[in-house]
Simulated assay, not measured.
Amino acid sequence: MHALKKNRPLRRVVLASAATVSGLVMLLSLKPHTLPEVAAAPAPAASGGATAGSGTTGSPSGGSSSGHTTGTRTVTGRTVQTRWGPVQVRVTLKNGRITDVTAVAYPSDNPRDQEINSYALPQLRREALAAQSASIDAVSGASYTSQGYIGSLQSALDSAGR
C-alpha cells in the first residue's frame, strides 16, 4: 500500500480540531457593528448660544406648552456624530407643522462627502416635509448621513414637543 493512501485517523482528528479552533478564533475576533450615535460622546455646545442637548435656537412667536403651538418656531436638533462627521438639522414649525428643514452641519471635508450630500440632503428634506415627522427612509449611498439626519430631526421635534 502506498504511504499517502494509509488510513491515519489521528492525523484527520488533529487537522479537524486545528481547523475548528482556527475558525472559532477568527469568529470571536470579529468586532460587532455599533451605530455611530450610540458610540458618540456628548456633543459640545452648538453655535447660536444653545446647548446641543436643548436644541432650541429660536423662541416661539406664540403658543402654549401643551405640544400644539401656534405661530412659528425654529428648533435645532442635537448634533449626531457619524462615521464621516457630525450631522445637525434645524426645523421650522408653523402652527405645529414642519415648514422647513435645514441641515446646518454635515460632512463636507472632501469631494466625495460633498457629492453624496448634494443629492442626499435635498431628498431627506423632501421626505421630512412630506412625512411631517422623522419617520423617513434613509437615502441609498448616504446611510450614515441619513442616520444622523433622522436622529437630529427627531431630537428637534422632541424639543419642540412633537
Rank of each mutant, 00 (worst) to 15 (best):
L35M: 11
V87C: 06
P9R: 02
E127W: 04
D113T: 02
T51L: 09
Y149F: 14
V104P: 07
P107R: 01
G141Q: 05
P122F: 03
T56V: 15
R78S: 14
L121C: 02
Q154H: 00
R126V: 09
P60L: 10
Q88S: 03
K5I: 10
A103Y: 00
S159Y: 02
R126G: 02
G67Y: 13
G151N: 04
R11F: 15
L27Y: 15
M1C: 07
R162H: 09
A43E: 14
T79C: 05
V21M: 08
T70K: 12
P44I: 00
G148W: 05
G55K: 06
S29Q: 12
T76S: 13
S54Y: 11
P86E: 07
T99H: 05
A40C: 04
P36Q: 01
P42H: 00
P111N: 02
R126I: 10
V38F: 10
D113S: 05
A160S: 09
D113C: 01
A103I: 11
S65V: 10
P111C: 00
T34A: 11
G55S: 06
P122G: 01
P122C: 07
P86A: 06
T102Q: 10
P86K: 02
A105E: 13
V13Y: 07
P60Y: 11
I136L: 02
R90G: 04
L121F: 02
A131G: 03
P9C: 04
T99D: 07
S47F: 12
S66L: 13
A128L: 01
D109G: 13
Q154I: 01
R126H: 07
Q88W: 02
A105W: 05
G96V: 13
P60H: 10
V87R: 05
K31Q: 13
V25S: 08
A19D: 03
D100C: 02
L153A: 02
R162G: 11
S47L: 15
S59F: 11
T74C: 06
G77Q: 07
A160T: 09
N7S: 12
A50W: 11
S152I: 00
G161K: 08
T51H: 07
L4Q: 15
N110R: 06
A105R: 14
Q132V: 08
P111R: 01
A128N: 03
N7T: 12
L35F: 11
T51P: 14
A40Y: 02
G71M: 08
L129Q: 03
G62T: 12
A39L: 12
T70R: 08
S65P: 14
G62C: 13
T76D: 09
A131W: 01
G63I: 09
V104K: 07
L28P: 01
V89I: 12
I98V: 14
G151V: 03
G67W: 14
A41P: 04
R8C: 14
G151K: 01
V80E: 15
S118E: 11
N7G: 05
D137Y: 09
V87Y: 09
A160E: 08
S64Y: 13
A18G: 09
A130F: 00
G161Q: 09
K6G: 06
